[in-house]
Design a protein around this nucleic acid. Structure first.
Lengths: 206, 206
DNA sequence: GGCAACTCTGAAACTTGTTCTAGATTACCG
DNA sequence: CGGTAATCTAGAACAAGTTTCAGAGTTGCC
């Protein structure tokens, strides 16, 4: 993968400059409102007004509130990935590097818990109509984790481990966001699941 | 724990017979509608009509749609737990017994995919106001998994593993329900995460 | 420049979750 | 039994996501 770091629309018509700007305004307004009050605070009428776009136009760009928030998440994830790439995790063991990376992401989310709430709730609430977009988020997350592992050619078992790590990551976030798990607990869960990686590296420690 | 297998209301006033019957009718209608069309098909007006109860009454019994569906899930989980107790898993290894139990539950959900959709979506979409109820579901799930492990006194590490297994279970269900993962993939994910248990049993195989 | 197609706007309408109200019913207490 | 408080009912009303539509504005193209 070389330089198609953009949103990677498979076959969407190229947007004009003004359209790109609109899209950007919408995403910005969405993130802003989400930062204030989470999922519920992102109200489509307000997003439209905030981004100076008619409601119908908002729906043309993002066919539902969930689509909008998942796109917002894609946006944030890209930041995250770029950031992590600049300062890669420092531990020796792959499992520890992954845990370190996820904890770094977790701390970033803690700085904007409402935004995290909006994005994660949208992600898990998404139905089939949003599958492509959610899948894209999932691929992006996988890429970040694989980066942290620093493997050129992961085995199927390692890919399975990564899947399970993602599952745990999402679900642990939800328990944290809904107040059913502490930050410390999420940390433990992440560290626990990351040990799965050690199981799959032939020359790992016991 | 002896016989308080009921819904375990901490301090709710005892319901009269007719009230208990109403509650039951509501839960039944909810499950019925959910079985047809999933989360979206459970419409509060329809639930009310179906269970021959006024809308206001429905909301007195269950303060939101999510509360209602989470209660529905509690109900179903109890069935499940009772069923599993009757025929416990047969494998030798704890990790395999857990995987076997979860796969059995998964097959049960496959028989009613729409109902599964409604319950799981509600569970992960629940906000803080539903935390107690969601927590109850989580405890019930933990109990089922611990039962499968057949341990009298789980270590903290083992409890951590169980937490991660639950995370994976919920998240894998979501990916399946939204069509982003196949049944086979869910099976792999469950089997993968269950190997965490082997990591925590001192006399397990490598 | 001028036109055809597409896009955007503003506003109303529709849907479904949730709340509220006024009046009937029921449950409980003396 | 009679009364009173709690509960239930029917229905309107409200909130926010989504859809629709007529008209104005842009864009691409000749």
């Amino acid at each position: 993968m070389t330089a198609e770091a953009k949103t990677a629309h498979p076959a969407s018509p190229p947007l004009t400059e003004r359209q790109e700007a609109r899209r950007r305004r919408i995403l910005h307004a969405s993130a802003q409102l989400a930062s204030r009050g989470g999922f519920d605070a992102v109200q489509m009428r307000e997003v439209a007004e905030s981004s100076q776009v008619a409601l119908g136009t908002l729906y043309r760009y993002f066919p539902s509130k969930v689509h909008l928030l998942v796109a917002t998440m894609q946006d944030q994830l890209q930041h995250m990935h770029a950031t992590v790439r600049k300062r890669p995790p420092s531990s020796d063991l792959p499992s520890e590097r992954v845990a370190e990376t996820l904890m770094r992401a977790f701390r970033a989310l803690q700085r904007e818990p409402h935004l995290a709430d909006a994005m994660v709730r949208a992600l898990t609430f998404a139905d089939r109509s949003v599958s492509p977009e959610v899948d894209q988020v999932s691929r992006q997350t996988t890429a970040i984790i694989l980066d942290a592992m620093e493997l050129d050619d992961p085995t199927p078992q390692q890919l399975s481990a990564v899947r399970v790590i993602e599952h745990t990551w999402h679900s642990a976030l939800i328990t944290w966001l809904s107040g059913r798990a502490s930050i410390a607990q999420v940390k433990i869960d992440i560290e626990t699941v990351c040990r799965l990686i050690d199981l799959t590296t032939p020359d790992g420690q016991k």
